[in-house]
Design a protein around this nucleic acid. Sequence first.
DNA 1: TAGTTATTTTGATAAATTTCTAAATATCTA
DNA 2: TAGATATTTAGAAATTTATCAAAATAACTA
Lengths: 90, 90
Amino acid sequence: MSMNQAFKALSDPTRRKILDLLREKDRTAGEIAEHFQMTKPSISHHLNLLKQAEMVFDERKGQNIYYSLNTTVFQDLLKWFIQFHSKEEQ
Amino acid sequence: MSMNQAFKALSDPTRRKILDLLREKDRTAGEIAEHFQMTKPSISHHLNLLKQAEMVFDERKGQNIYYSLNTTVFQDLLKWFIQFHSKEEQ
DNA sequence: TAGTTATTTTGATAAATTTCTAAATATCTA
DNA sequence: TAGATATTTAGAAATTTATCAAAATAACTA
């Protein structure tokens, strides 16, 4: 169920760039938005989709909301990809 | 460029199921369509997207067109995922 | 060559997605 | 408590996507 959402989440370049940013370090919604030309509400929407797909965590600290990677879903995705890789090696 | 198309291609459950079918063996467009409730034109459309994303090959043999996996793009996708996995292990 | 089978292409429609602006919510600070 | 800052939510417009029915293309067969 969540695998489907995860694949959907990855289909957008903005969201993949967000994930790449979070790979470096945890960041606030505002810090993330600074890296895009898009408005903050649009980035907030993308962050929400990533959250629903269980690919990121969010945690409020005062006025800021920090986002961080949740790598558990990546494990499942990785397994899916390794299947295809292993086929090639037959 | 093609990575973006590949992620898009993977975002649809029908297309992922097609890839799974092709993982077992090469199949004709008709054989693939049999596994779905959808019409053949719809499946043909999905096959075309997978082809544009360079995830499948197609080859006509008489009246049939055989589809098979092209695993080269999967390698690139796999690398992308391994990045996140490696982050977790830090 | 006429008919049949396999598949794709075209054109249309409905649903989903992306993006924006404006408004709402939450928190901090003077 | 009033104002400022950070972020999200709501509602709307534009674009993209998924799907179908009908028509077109390609190859085989009698």
